[in-house]
């Protein structure tokens, strides 16, 4: 069963890494799960860190994660329980960081206008489909070599398994 149901947090365009995880913590909060989760989206939406539940997803507009290369902008969301970010488009370093930490980063523009915060959608990772608002939206699969990294849970487990 690869179809899973998720609750949505909806945000706009250009949600940059400084508002996802402020730069001032970049060298003091690195791996501590509780601290990462506590500061997730701190300068964008304080409700997120307080109320996010395991399995939630973010749905956002264009260029999600632009700005810094800081990987905590991905891992803070993972630690907050987030399963996926579905966006109109991603900033490229963020997209890579997501794959490298096992976070689904799905580009699927038409979904973005169909859901609001608090609503639910379903993701089918086998069929590469998103079910939302009574409709079905297809998204492009990753290149095989890249999908393998995501499936392993990120680049560290993937690389460890290669040796």
């Amino acid at each position: 069963m690869t179809k899973t149901i998720h609750r949505v947090w909806k945000y706009g365009d250009n949600i940059n890494t400084d508002v996802i995880f402020p730069g001032k913590y970049t060298y003091t909060i690195n791996h501590d799960p509780a601290q990462l989760a506590r500061h997730a989206l701190e300068d964008l939406d304080p409700a997120f860190a307080a109320q996010a539940q395991t399995g939630d997803v973010i749905v956002a507009g264009r260029n999600f994660g632009n700005g810094s290369s800081r990987e905590q902008a991905v891992t803070c969301l993972v630690q907050a329980g987030l399963r996926a970010v579905i966006a109109h488009s991603f900033a490229r370093i963020y997209f890579r960081n997501a794959i490298n930490n096992g976070l689904l980063a799905i580009e699927c523009p038409p979904v973005v206008d169909c859901v609001e915060t608090g609503e639910t959608l379903a993701i089918d990772t086998t069929a590469h489909e998103i079910h939302a608002d009574g409709r079905v939206f297809a998204f492009a699969p990753l290149p095989v070599a890249v999908q393998a990294i995501l499936d392993a849970g990120g680049i560290v487990p993937w690389l460890s398994a290669q040796v």
Binding site: E71, V74, R96, N100, P143, V146, I155, V156
Partner: peptide, 20 residues
Amino acid sequence: AGIGRSEVAALWATGQLWLR
């Protein structure tokens, strides 16, 4: 080009990385 920390760790280890 910029990349994240995990990929730099992977590069330290293997010297290689994929790019599109």
